[in-house]
Design a protein around this nucleic acid. Structure first.
Length: 156
DNA sequence: GCCAACGTTGGC
DNA sequence: GCCAACGTTGGC
């Protein structure tokens, strides 16, 4: 089974890569995605062993700040069933869940984040989903060469 | 804080 | 099924 590559966004004020680093086993579930396109990827496409670019959005310096590895493939996002959770969705039926999540484990925190500005300046990355106009998907596919380019950019 | 772009909702 | 209204995202 081929490894696939993804990018996951998070607002660092809500959950940052430092938070991930502090988790037990440096692993967390990626709950709270409430967009159908992203859901489909979490449910159907993102598999254990896939690689993830960890991206900080809606902050002073938007950037890829590290990488993670998928440690558990898609399973129901049970936060949707918890009326106390901010991710509660009363329309999601436990017998036929609407929302899914995966688990990710920290792989590497970049010494120096690769900023959005640097990504935009790199000619080989023009087709990245992240860089397309109006792109808001919080979980998105990344091409292998894009992933590898960004890893190289982080090694400075 | 502004605002463009996008997704969802709901009346018709 | 259309589309206006609304809410959210996220760079700047």
């Amino acid at each position: 089974m081929a490894v696939h590559y993804w990018l996951m966004k998070t607002e660092p004020t809500t959950y940052s890569i430092d938070d991930l680093a502090k988790e037990k086993n440096q692993t967390t579930c990626w709950e709270g995605v409430r967009n159908y396109q992203a859901r489909n990827m979490l449910r159907d496409e993102i598999k254990k062993g896939d690689r993830v670019l960890f991206y900080h959005s809606a902050c002073k310096e938007p950037a890829v700040v590290g990488t993670a590895i998928v440690s558990k493939s898609g399973y129901p996002d049970h936060f949707a069933f918890d009326s106390k959770s901010k991710y509660y969705d009363k329309k999601s039926d436990p017998d036929d869940p609407t929302w899914y999540m995966v688990d990710i484990k920290l792989e590497k925190r970049f010494d120096k984040p690769v900023t959005l500005k640097e990504l935009r300046e790199r000619t080989g990355l023009k087709e990245m989903v992240l860089l397309q106009k109006g792109s808001r998907l919080s979980v998105q596919p990344v091409r292998k060469n894009e992933f590898e380019t960004i890893l190289k950019m982080a090694k400075r």
